[in-house]
Design a protein around this nucleic acid. Structure first.
Lengths: 233, 233
DNA sequence: CGTGTAGTTGAGATGCGTCAATAGTTGTGG
DNA sequence: CCACAACTATTGACGCATCTCAACTACACG
């Protein structure tokens, strides 16, 4: 693992990077097998809010998150931003069939991603079984996440949206009741189709109701998972 | 084409079924090549609102719409329904990696679908290039649609949602400015995260503003596509 | 210690949901 | 062909959840 990927222990997002289960899952696979995935993955390093690719730019690569968190988003003509998805270590993003990307991808936290040259559908389909299977698996995982995101955005109250987000983050992050968010309130708001004020108010309300506690802005402890889960579904 | 698939010309959804470009695309491929797609597709016929598969039931098949329109949806504990997607002739739906379906699929109109036995990711990955490529193509198409649905649901006004829906339906349906909707207002509302009252009011408002005309409840003519498109994006 | 950014809280405005009534459409039977 | 019932869609009035605008607080950093 290159030195550039080591994150100081006191970094605010250390919990995300240091998640043992995730690293064990992401890094070895990148080292062991990704050499055979489409083309040897090049490791790229991004600072927070750095752009990985822009909406409209050539679709030449897709990516795997090695460490940190990535968001894909769309900027609307009124200046607002809609976040399509968050990608955590081990997740893949950026595969599209068109010639251009239809979303932007940005680093939420300091992060490292492996890039793979996109050679089109035929290249994947005619690749070896393992490669094709991996690609399909990631595509279907992203499809499932997008569908669930739609269901959350569809017809739900602010508290249901926030609860669903917290449950999702808790499930995807390191085990335990503590969530160390890599993203700001504005990211949560843009992901859930709410304003930062509503997100903030909703978190405060959930804390008053005893479902969560907020030791700091970016750290959230789930104190009543049953109730939070029931609220979210 | 079996007699059971012929639809009388005066049927209310005739326009969808009779769309020449769609039939030319959907039916021949089902006849010519789908014999090699995973396993010979069995043709199934459904009446409006019939259930194709239910949320939670075994994930043993995926499907291709031959004629008519299909919706996938989730029923929430409060009795509300969220529609995840509409599938038109030529679209494929129902592929998931889990052992159970996480959504229900229902016929919106009278429709015919071809079913394919789901043998898991490995079967697809190790299939011939053409089959793997087709499956991937459909998966990525559905992923793109789900992402765009999320963006629409995210942070948009009722009129923007309805406009985006109309533009999407116009693009996917037969060419021209006339849309013959297969679905009821309740379906539109559940798809867009609105109520039927708001959908109805919004359509009336768009008509007053001269963007569309409403010859009948299920038929919508786009009279100012530029403005409608600008509103939707 | 001062400054800038992120987050929280409050008050008022508004868009959409809810409930209710009306109008239109489809299908059935006389 | 008409009468009626059942269903779908439209329109109106009102309430509420969220947005908007604004002030305040907490925290990181030089």
């Amino acid at each position: 693992m290159p030195a550039s990927l080591s994150i100081s222990a006191d970094h605010r997002f250390a919990a995300v990077h240091a998640a043992p289960s995730r690293l064990a899952w992401a890094i070895p696979s990148a080292e062991r097998r990704d050499g055979g995935f489409a083309q040897a993955g090049q490791l790229l390093h991004f600072l927070p809010d750095a752009e990985i690719y822009a909406d409209g730019c050539d679709n030449v690569s897709f990516y795997k998150v090695v460490s940190g968190v990535v968001r894909t988003c769309k900027f609307r003509s009124d200046g607002r931003r809609q976040i399509d998805a968050f990608y955590l270590p081990g997740d893949m993003f950026g595969f599209e069939t068109g010639a251009e990307h239809r979303l932007s991808a940005e680093a939420v936290s300091e992060c490292a991603v492996a890039s793979y040259r996109w050679r089109g559908l035929d290249a994947i389909a005619s690749a070896d079984d393992w490669t094709a299977r991996q690609f399909l698996s990631y595509a279907l995982q992203n499809l499932r996440r997008a569908q669930e995101h739609s269901l959350v955005l569809g017809r739900r109250s602010a508290s249901q949206k926030v609860a669903a987000f917290l449950i999702d983050m808790a499930d995807r992050g390191p085990a335990g009741q503590t969530i160390d968010l890599a993203m700001a309130r504005q990211d949560m708001a843009d992901y859930l189709g709410l304003t930062i004020e509503t997100v903030s108010r909703t978190l405060s309300q959930l804390e008053r109701e005893g479902l969560i506690s907020l030791p700091s802005a970016r750290r959230i402890c789930i104190t009543n998972r049953i109730a939070l889960h029931r609220l979210s579904s």
